[in-house]
Design a protein around this nucleic acid. Sequence first.
DNA 1: TTCATATGTCATGTT
DNA 2: AGAACATGACATATG
Length: 742
Amino acid sequence: MLSLKKYLTEGLLQFTILLSLIGVRVDVDTYLTSQLPPLREIILGPSSAYTQTQFHNLRNTLDGYGIHPKSIDLDNYFTARRLLSQVRALDRFQVPTTEVNAWLVHRDPEGSVSGTQPSSGLTLESSSGLQDVTGPDNGVRESETEQGFSEDLEDLGAVAPPVSGDLTKEDIDLIDILWRQDIDLGAGREVFDYSQRQKEQDVDKELQDGGEQDPWAGEGAEALARNLLVDGETGESFPAQFPADISSITEAVPSESEPPVLQNNLLSPLLTGTESPFDLEQQWQDLMSIMEMQAMEVNTSASEILYNAPPGDPLSTNYSLAPNTPINQNVSLHQASLGGCSQDFSLFSPEVESLPVAGSSTLLPLVPSNSTSLNSTFGSTNLAGFFFPPQLNGTANDTAGPELPDPLGGLLDEAMLDEISLMDLAIEEGFNPVQASQLEEEFDSDSGLSLDSSHSPSSLSSSDGSSSSSSSSSSSSSSASSSASSSFSEEGAVGYSSDSETLDLEEAEGAVGYQPEYSKFCRMSYQDPSQLSCLPYLEHVGHNHTYNMAPSALDSADLPPPSALKKGSKEKQADFLDKQMSRDEHRARAMKIPFTNDKIINLPVEEFNELLSKYQLSEAQLSLIRDIRRRGKNKMAAQNCRKRKLDTILNLERDVEDLQRDKARLLREKVEFLRSLRQMKQKVQSLYQEVFGRLRDENGRPYSPSQYALQYAGDGSVLLIPRTMADQQARRQERKPKDRRK
DNA sequence: TTCATATGTCATGTT
DNA sequence: AGAACATGACATATG
């Protein structure tokens, strides 16, 4: 019960502080709330449990100091909960929503046709989020964000290999990771390993780029302009449109010309001439799984929209690719708004052009005449939008924006993400002193919780370490041994451990009277006397609070003992010691108690009673002795209590820092996952195009994308089915998640 | 003198 | 039931 109660009481305090801390980012939360429960949970969810866990875990692990060793089980419980919640939070990243948002958002600055489209088409959440992110008051932040994304892009380029037709082992691993992350709640390990790798690479890259430069600030305007342009062009599903994407993808595109191979069992109509030695079935499965999951998120998801809409179908009227007039539409689209169309076509064009197979001819209608030039500018990014090409082709010119579902969700994700985490990231990774301090200041001021310890050396943290606060990290603690030794004595039987020594000394000096000065200090400070005496900032410990002392006792105590009448240093020393004595010690002396207060206070009950029985004591003496014992114990208890309070505060401080660090790490991981997911989608799209382009009917003619589509079966096989069927299935799939959300 | 801080003490509740 | 412990509130000392 003690531990439980502690959890409750401390939990309240921690929760309050955490709330205040979180209050710092309330603005962020506002656009977190509705749309991003997972991210919100990352930030808010683990708070109470996590804090508790951290608090106790720290205590348990740092130097063995545990206020409540009994609470180990609870610690485990909270730890498990925290980890699970983190893993779950990672699992809930909603990529697709992000895509649409970014697309629309960045189209406006582009000034293309989409620019005329009012943002009203965006959902309320999205628009608000966009405003929050790119609002006029956030100009600096915006630039930072853009810069951060651009950097991310660079990271991306470094981390992820160029997109290629053949999946490299890294690609497969990436797919695996992402896939499992989505479908397996317990797959945190792979995810984290991967993210860790990415993070390390990111750090390395940042270091190489030059540590003195703030990664999140800098070429704001330029990067912003670049970003916006690119984003608008890509129609990329992800909010973070990194300029680097263009280059990276462009580089990757030619390699995609390499014919990817599907086995016959996967696609019967598929051309078999280019079968590769690799078994891509599993890869296909993975890719399709990702695709399907994403498709569930986006109402007008990918390939279904792209090709599924049959002629005459209400949907098709708006979204169908309209293969009959592909070139015209393509051209117009490109010229008008490069939005989704350009993406599609540019997406196809590189492949088709480079494809040695007849399949290129199949897709030729899809390829814009100016595909090459387009590719140079937008081609690479177009891949990212492979899910939306159909819509764009059919309607992008005028209505693409409004039609897109959940347009800004993703952008919110990213923007909020950046905004929240930029400084956290700095704390986590850079540990740049200046940045860290600045960040801390911000957090401090915002949270209302003073984290001064990091700023002022004489603050709590220092005192913590000196006063044997076990919770303080042992590594930083100057006296690890002292803290370790003292910490437990505090927790358990305070003062008992040293009783024997002090008692011996006192007895040697004389039964009645005062304790050695250091013994008092020791009691008061919970510290090793030697250490304590060496600590100047603990001088206050020597306060002699003699109030409440009975006048008579004081008088009698002040009287120099007969033996002390000797003149000289001894007398002075005795006076000094007298002054150091506590009230109870004076009283005991006045009442001629035949044993030390230390014994009175610290002896176990049995021994204490035994001791009392040895002497013939008056009632007044017995009463005083009991009072001394009671007060002495309470004094220690009070000291312990205060010490605990201090430790709690310090632990909370550290918990807050840890939480901030965790939050930053999770956000960064999310960014990385989103990036990887985008790459996967690009790859899937390119593979889809390539495979579909190689399909031939009985007469050796290519299948029309408007009439047929590739269907991914649950067992991993890929089927070529009529588009009408595909549409029906797609609609069925779309409804399920919708209903579920309701 | 006033204020912040440290400490001791009491009352009360919990273990 | 009593001892030990925890803690809020208050008082006092100190710088």
